[in-house]
């Protein structure tokens, strides 16, 4: 079982504030996720498995040519808020 401290640390890394109930909930849920990964570890013994889908002789590089993205406006419209062409987010404080 994941400890309460471990859950709080993961929450901190994800910038989440958890209620007491949620701490207990994630303790159980994250433990189940980790257990599942343990199970997978027994199956996937080949460490290189993650790149197996890439053909060995494929040219993996792109030539260095700059091409601006064509649908720039569409991309900016995806943002919930824009100010002075910048993505506007809730104020971020330096975390201590």
């Amino acid at each position: 079982m994941l400890s309460r401290e471990e859950v709080l640390k993961i929450a901190k890394l994800a910038r989440l504030t958890l209620t007491e109930d949620e701490i207990g909930f994630y303790q159980k849920q994250l433990t189940r996720v980790l257990d599942h990964i343990q199970d997978l570890n027994q199956v996937l013994t080949n460490k290189e498995a993650f790149v197996q889908h890439v053909p060995v002789d494929a040219e993996p590089f792109r030539e260095d040519v700059a091409v601006p993205f064509a649908n720039h406006d569409g991309l900016m419209k995806n943002a919930p808020a824009v100010e002075n062409n910048c993505f506007l987010l809730p104020a971020i404080m330096e975390q201590n």
């Binding site: 792109r62 260095d64 040519v65 700059a66 601006p68 993205f69 720039h72 910048c86």
Partner: peptide, 21 residues
Amino acid sequence: ASKMFCRCPNQYGSSPNTNVC
């Protein structure tokens, strides 16, 4: 001339968010 993993220009001083994809 372009970014590491996409074709956006690698250019300092452009107006904000013009070199994005």
